[in-house]
Nucleic acid binder design. Structure first.
Length: 1072
RNA sequence: GGGCUUAUAGCUCAGACGGUUAGAGCGCGCGCCUGAUAAGCGCGAGGUCCCUGGUUCGACUCCAGGUAAGCCCA
C-alpha cells in the first residue's frame, strides 16, 4: 500500500522522491499486492489525468488510423466473448496510437430490432400483435427505449475495467434521430438508384412475431426436428387406376397444392402395386420405398414424357383462377429422397413460387398471417394452426386410401431465433434492396479487404457474396427505423423521404421536434406530388442490420453534418467482430458502402471465433457453462485476462476458455516480468545507482548485456512486424519468450553484478542494460497489458524524469536500432545455452550438486566455429556449470557411437532415387573409417547399388549415440562429458560454498535484512571443515556480509547445528 | 445435402519452402537451487502427427477419398 501512496503523490505533482543524499529513488515495489487491486489504482490515475484523451490529442495532427466500432446491444450483460472482441480492438488502437496515428474511437450502440421487442413483450406478457396494438404502439415504443439501455452500466463498467479505450460519452446510437435521418438518407440513395423495391417473395415467416425474417436471422435458429414424412397418391386424370406417388414433409401445404414437379431427365416408372393400381415414381426411388421386394415395372418414362399430365386435386379449395394440377418440370427435383415427384404449393416455398411464376400457376394461400388455416377452408382443420392440422390431414388422406406410406423425418428446420416458433415459408409482400445489382462491385471490393484469417475472403465471405440474393429489408414490426416510403391513398404514387427537412416540407403539421419512430412518423401525411391526394407511410420498419450497416456514415450524421469527417473516415482501416458477423455486419457494411460510395467500407477485418466454455462446448446460458468476466476481473485482473486471450490461441481459432489458462498467464508472463521489475527496483534503490547518469556505451558493456539488447531489438522488429499484420497472438508470444530469456538467462546470469560487484563500469552497465530493457518491454507490451506496462513505465521512467510523458500510453512505441542487433551473438548464445543445458543434464546424471566445483568439462563433436563460440562465452559455461576448465576433444569414439547419415536435403536433389541406397551403404560401412577418410581427403566415394557416388563433407552428417559407461550427454551431433574426480582443493572449495549456502539460509531464517552485517561463530570438530573455512575465509565472509568471526556466539545469536557435506558444524549468526 | 475451418503428448498450443531422432508451456514423477519467492532450474515418463490411398528417393507437411468436430448455408 505504501507503494501506491508514493506513486499517487508523485503524479499529483509532488516532488520526486529522493533519499537524504539526493539520490532519485524508484517507488518501492511491495510484494504485498494483487494485480487486480493495482489495476484499479491505475484506472483511477488514467481517469484523473485524462490519459485516454491525451493519447488522442497528442496525435491530433498525425495521420489518422480509422477504427470503426461494431455496435453491441446493451439489453443483455456482456460476456467473455465481448471482452475478447474489445481487447483485440483495443490492442490495435493502442498500438496504432503509440506508433504515431490519430485513432478516433467512437463507441456505438445497436438499439433497434426484434430482440428488444421480444424482451419487452415478455416483460409485458404480450404474445401477439393484437395484444400489442391493444397495449398501444406508443407505450410499447417507450418501453423499448427503456429496455435498450438496461445493461448499459454493466457494459460501461466492463469496458472501463478491461482497459478498452473507447469514447462512450460520444457514442453513436442507432435510435437517435440523427442516426435514423442518416439511414433515411442512405435509403433515399438506394431509392434514387432504383435499388429499393417492393416485391412478393416467399420468406421465412414467424407467425408469432408476425414478421418475415432475414436470412441471417433464419440461420440463427435451425434445430433438428422430426416432421411427418408422407407419400401420397395423386389420382391421374385420363388413366385408369394410375397414381402419382408424391412426397412431402409438410402435409399442411397439401390443401394448397397446384402442381407436381418432376426432373426432366430422370427415369420414371409405373409399377404394379398389387391391387391393380399403378404408381408412378422415379426409378431410383424404388429401393427407398419398396426395399428388397421390387415391384413389377409396367412402364418406363423420362421425366419430360410426364409433362402436362393432369391429376385430380387432393382437396378442392375452389381457388383456381388459372389452370392447375398438372405435371411440370423443375431442376430442383432430386431422387436421393422421396419419390422424385415434388408437390408444388407456390405460397409456401421459394422453388414453388418461382415455378408458379414460370407456369402461371394460381397462388393458393389457405393460411393466414396468424399461422392458422383461414376459415374459408371447408375441411375440419379450418382455423387450426397448421402444424396441429398435420395429423388430421394425414388421417383424412388415409381414410380415402390416398396415403401410401407415413413415417417420421428428422431434419434441420428453422425456428424463430427469438421466440422458438417454427418458421413457415410464406409468400409475403416485402421491401427489398436490390443487392444482386451490385454483386460484382461487392465482390471486387471484397478482394481489396485484408481478412484475418485470410481464408474468409474467398471462403466463407466470398461464397456468401456469390450466392447473394436481394436483401429483404422490411419488417412488419414496430421498434426500428421506419421505412421512409409514403404511398398515395388515391393514385398509389410512392415517395421515399431522405431527410427531416424534406419530411417537414412535404408533410402536413409535422411537429418541430418529431421523433423518427413509430407511431409518430406514422401520423405524418404527405401531399401527393402527382394527384394532390394524401400519402401515408407504409407500415414497415427496416431490418436493424441495415442500421448498423450504415455506421460508417450514420455515426457522423452524414451528410447533414461532418462532411469533411466522412472523407477522412471512409473507408475504415480496421474493424473486428466475431465470425458470425460474416452475414451480419461485415456484409451490411460492405453492401451499404458499395451502394453509396462504390468503395469497400473497411480495409482490414479481424474475424474472431467463438469461445467455448471450460467443458469445450459452446458457451450458453442453457448449458450453464458461461463464465462471468467479473469473476476473473476481480480476482486475476484485466491484464491476466487480456494476456491469456492474446496468447492462448489465435483469435480466429475457437478457444476453450479455461481459468487455468488465465492463472498461467498471470504466473508465467506477468509474474515473471513483475519479478524482474521488482528485482531491479529493489537493488537499484539499495545500491543507489543512477541509471541515467552513469550508463556506459553499449560497446563497453558485458557480452550478456550486448546479447539481451540484441535480443530486445530483434524483438522490437518482430513485434512491430506482427502488429502491422494484425497477428495479435504472435506479437505478445514473442514478448513472452523474451521475458523468459530476460528472467531466466539475463538476470540469472547477471544477478551478482547487481548486488555483489564493486561500483564501477560493469555494475553500471548491468543496471543501465536492465533498465533500458524493462522500459522498452513496458512500451512494447503496453497495447496488451496496459496496466502492468504503465506501472513499470511510471515507476521506472516518471520517477527519474519529471519531463517524461505521464503514462506509457503517451510514449512512442520502440523502434529497433539495427546497430544494436548482433545476429551472430544471438546464435552463439543459443548454442552456448544448449551446451550448458547438456552440461546440466550430465551433472544431474552424475548426482554431484552444482555447488561442488568440478575440474573439467569436455566437449566433443564441435566445428571450429562452434568451439570459438564456446570460447567466446566460456565465462558463462564456467559459472553456470561450476567447472574449472573447458576442454575440446576429437575423440568422439571414446564416448560415442558414430554414424554417418546422408544430408537428405542436399543429396536428395542431387541424386534423387540414389539417396536411399547411399543411406544404406553408409549405415553398413564403418563410420569411423569413413569419417576419417572424409576429413583427410575432403571427399568420399560411396558404392551403392552398383553406382559410385562422390560425397563431399557437406553431403553427410555425423550423428552420435550414447555409448554406455560415461557421465556424458549428447545430441545428434555433439556431446559433453564431466570429469567427476574431486581433488582436495575442489573438495575444500565445495565446502566453502556449502558454508555460504548454510549461512545465507540462516540469515533468511533469522529474518535479517539483506544488507545487515553479521558476526559469525563456527564450532566444529571436523578438521576438513576447519581447513576449508580457513582456506576460503575471505570469500565466505564477503558473500555473507560477515564483518567479524567471533569465538563465542553472542546472546542474541541465531544458532544451528547441521551437516555440511556430511561434516558436522554448529554455526551462529548475529546482527552487528 | 452444400461450403468453409479444424484434427499433433493427459490439457492448451507451435511446427516457412516436403528432408529421415516432431517441439513448447501446463500437469505428473524425480532431483537441484534459492539474497528475485504469486519464484526459479535440471532430468524423466508421455506421440500409429485422425484414417485409407496416391504423388515422391523421401510425407506431420502436397493431392484424393473417408471419419470426427465447429461454424455457415439449404
Amino acid at each position: 500500500m505504501f507503494f501506491y501512496l508514493i506513486c499517487t503523490a508523485r503524479l499529483e505533482g509532488a516532488p520526486i522522491e529522493k533519499n537524504n543524499e539526493g539520490f532519485l529513488m524508484f517507488g518501492e515495489v511491495s510484494s504485498q499486492f494483487t494485480f487486480a487491486e493495482r489495476e484499479k489504482q491505475i484506472l483511477e490515475f488514467w481517469r484523473e489525468n485524462d490519459i485516454f484523451q491525451k493519447s488522442m490529442e497528442i496525435y491530433k495532427d498525425a495521420p489518422p488510423f480509422v477504427f470503426l466500432e461494431g455496435p453491441p446491444f446493451a439489453n443483455a450483460p456482456p460476456g467473455v466473448h465481448h471482452v475478447l472482441a474489445r481487447i483485440m480492438k483495443d490492442a490495435v488502437c493502442r498500438y496504432k496510437t503509440m506508433t504515431g496515428h490519430y485513432v478516433h474511437r467512437k463507441a456505438g450502440w445497436d438499439t433497434h430490432g426484434l430482440p428488444v421487442e421480444y424482451q419487452v413483450e415478455k416483460q409485458l406478457n404480450i404474445t401477439n400483435k393484437a395484444e400489442l396494438e391493444a397495449y398501444g404502439v406508443q407505450n410499447f415504443i417507450e418501453k423499448c427505449k427503456e429496455n435498450v439501455f438496461q445493461y448499459e452500466q454493466d457494459w460501461r463498467q466492463m469496458t472501463e475495467r478491461i482497459g478498452f479505450w473507447v469514447n462512450l460519452d460520444d457514442a453513436y446510437i442507432t435510435l437517435s434521430n440523427d442516426y435514423i435521418e442518416s439511414v433515411w438518407w442512405v435509403l433515399r440513395q438506394a431509392w434514387e438508384k432504383e435499388l429499393l423495391y417492393q416485391g412478393h417473395k416467399v420468406q421465412p415467416y414467424c407467425y408469432r412475431c408476425g414478421t418475415t425474417l432475414a436470412s441471417h436471422e433464419v440461420a440463427l435458429g435451425y434445430q433438428e426436428v422430426a416432421d411427418p414424412s408422407i407419400f401420397v397418391r395423386f389420382r391421374l386424370k385420363n388413366r385408369e387406376n394410375a397414381y402419382l406417388l408424391v412426397w412431402t414433409t409438410t402435409p399442411w401445404t397439401l390443401p394448397s397444392n397446384v402442381a407436381v414437379a418432376v426432373g426432366e431427365d430422370y427415369d420414371y416408372v409405373a409399377v404394379e402395386e398389387g391391387n391393380g393400381q399403378h404408381l408412378i415414381l422415379a426409378k431410383e426411388c424404388i429401393p427407398n420405398l419398396f426395399g428388397d421386394e421390387s415391384p413389377q415395372v409396367v412402364e418406363n418414362y423420362k421425366g419430360r414424357d410426364l409433362q402436362a399430365w393432369e391429376y385430380e386435386p387432393l382437396f378442392d379449395s375452389g381457388q383456381y383462377p388459372e389452370k392447375s394440377h398438372y405435371i411440370v418440370t423443375g431442376d430442383f427435383v432430386t431422387t436421393t429422397e422421396g419419390s422424385g415427384l415434388v408437390h408444388i404449393a407456390p405460397a409456401f416455398g421459394q422453388d414453388d413460387y418461382e415455378i408458379g411464376q414460370k407456369y402461371n400457376l394460381p397462388l393458393v394461400q389457405l393460411v393466414g398471417p396468424d399461422g392458422k388455416f383461414v376459415s374459408a377452408v371447408k375441411e375440419p382443420w379450418a382455423g387450426e394452426y397448421v402444424k396441429d392440422a398435420d395429423p388430421k390431414i394425414i388421417e383424412n388422406l388415409d381414410g380415402r386410401g390416398l396415403l401410401f406410406k407415413a413415417a417420421e423425418y428428422t431434419h434441420q428446420y428453422p425456428f424463430c431465433w427469438r421466440c422458438d416458433t417454427p418458421l413457415l415459408y410464406y409468400a409475403r409482400e416485402s421491401w427489398f434492396i436490390r443487392t444482386t445489382a451490385i454483386r460484382d462491385q461487392m465482390h471486387q471490393h471484397n478482394q481489396q479487404i485484408n481478412w484475418y484469417p485470410e481464408h474468409i475472403k474467398d471462403g466463407r465471405f466470398g461464397n456468401w457474396l456469390e450466392n447473394n440474393i436481394d436483401w429483404g429489408l422490411s419488417r412488419e414490426r414496430y421498434w426500428g427505423t421506419p421505412l421512409p416510403v409514403w404511398v398515395c391513398d388515391d393514385c398509389g404514387h410512392q415517395h421515399c423521404i431522405g431527410s427531416i427537412a424534406e419530411l417537414k416540407e412535404l408533410g402536413t403539421d409535422v411537429p418541430n421536434d418529431i421523433e423518427l419512430h413509430r407511431p409518430y412518423v406514422d401520423d405524418v401525411a404527405l401531399t401527393c406530388g402527382e394527384c394532390n391526394g394524401e400519402m401515408h407511410r407504409v407500415q414497415d420498419v427496416i431490418d436493424c442490420w441495415f442500421d448498423s450497416g450504415c455506421a460508417h456514415t450514420a455515426q457522423w450524421h452524414y451528410p447533414f453534418e461532418n462532411k469533411e469527417m466522412l472523407e477522412q473516415a471512409y473507408p475504415a482501416d480496421f474493424i473486428s467482430e466475431a465470425i458470425d458477423q460474416t452475414r451480419g455486419w461485415f456484409y451490411s457494411l460492405l453492401a451499404t458502402g458499395t451502394l453509396l460510395y462504390d468503395k469497400p467500407a473497411y480495409k482490414n477485418c479481424l474475424c474472431l471465433e467463438l469461445i467455448m466454455g471450460p467443458d469445450g462446448q459452446k458457451m450458453s446460458k442453457s448449458r450453464g457453462n458461461t463464465v462471468d468476466p467479473w469473476t476473473i476481473l476481480n480476482k486475476q485482473g484485466a491484464d491476466a485476462m487480456r494476456w491469456y486471450m492474446f496468447t492462448a490461441t489465435t483469435p480466429w481459432t475457437p478457444r476453450t476458455f479455461t481459468l487455468d489458462g488465465i492463472d498461467e498467464a498471470l504466473k508465467k508472463f506477468m509474474g515473471t516480468l513483475q519479478n524482474v521489475y521488482s528485482f531491479f527496483v529493489m537493488y537499484a534503490n539499495l545500491e543507489q545507482i543512477d541509471v541515467l547518469q552513469d550508463a556506459p556505451p553499449v560497446s563497453e558493456r558485458a557480452t550478456v548485456d550486448k546479447w539481451i539488447l540484441s535480443r530486445l531489438h530483434t524483438l522490437i522488429d518482430e513485434v512491430r512486424d506482427n502488429m502491422e499484420n494484425y497477428h495479435l497472438t504472435n506479437a505478445p508470444r514473442a514478448i513472452e519468450a523474451f521475458v523468459d530469456d530476460l528472467s531466466n538467462w539475463y538476470v540469472r546470469r547477471s544477478r551478482d553484478r547487481f548486488w555483489g560487484a564493486e561500483a564501477g563500469l560493469d555494475k553500471h552497465a548491468a543496471y543501465a542494460t536492465l533498465y533500458e530493457v524493462l522500459v522498452t518491454v513496458a512500451k512494447l507490451s503496453a497495447p496488451f497489458v496496459p496496466f502492468l506496462a504503465d506501472e513499470l513505465y511510471r515507476n521506472l521512467v516518471c520517477s527519474l524524469d519529471a519531463e517524461a510523458p505521464l503514462s506509457v500510453h503517451l510514449a512512442e512505441y520502440p523502434v529497433a536500432d539495427a546497430a544494436l542487433r548482433d545476429a551472430q551473438l544471438e546464435t552463439d548464445m543459443d548454442f552456448t545455452r544448449e551446451v550448458i543445458s547438456m552440461g546440466h543434464a550430465a551433472r544431474n546424471r552424475s548426482g554431484i550438486k552444482t555447488r561442488q566445483p568440478l575440474a573439467e568439462f569436455t566437449l566433443g563433436g564441435l566445428s571450429s566455429g562452434e568451439k570459438a563460440t564456446v570460447d567466446r562465452l566460456a565465462e558463462l559455461v564456467h559459472d553456470e556449470l561450476n567447472v574449472k576448465t573447458i576442454a575440446f576433444t576429437e575423440a568422439l569414439d571414446a564416448f560415442a557411437q558414430v554414424t554417418l547419415k546422408p544430408n537428405f536435403k542436399v543429396l536428395g536433389p542431387k541424386y534423387g532415387k540414389g539417396v536411399q541406397a547411399i543411406a544404406k551403404a553408409l549405415a553398413a560401412a564403418d563410420a569411423g573409417t569413413l569419417k576419417a577418410e572424409l576429413e583427410a581427403a575432403g571427399s568420399l566415394q560411396v558404392e551403392a547399388s552398383g553406382e559410385t557416388y562422390p560425397l563431399e563433407q557437406s553431403d553427410v552428417e555425423v550423428q552420435t549415440q550414447n555409448r554406455e559407461g560415461f557421465f556424458v550427454e549428447m545430441d545428434a551431433k555433439k556431446f559433453v562429458a564431466l570429469s567427476t574426480e574431486l581433488t582436495h582443493e575442489l573438495t575444500l572449495e565445495g565446502l566453502a560454498r556449502e558454508f555460504v549456502n548454510k549461512i545465507q539460509n540462516m540469515r533468511k531464517e533469522a529474518d535479517f535484512n539483506v544488507s545487515d552485517r553479521i558476526k559469525l561463530n563456527l564450532d566444529t570438530t571436523s578438521a576438513l571443515l576447519d581447513e576449508a573455512f580457513q582456506a576460503h575465509r575471505d570469500y565466505i565472509l564477503r558473500e555473507t556480509l560477515t564483518t567479524a568471526v567471533v569465538d563465542t556466539p553472542g546472546e542474541n545469536a541465531f544458532t544451528l547445528t547441521q551437516k555440511l557435506n556430511g561434516e558436522p558444524a554448529t554455526l551462529s549468526v548475529e546482527r552487528v
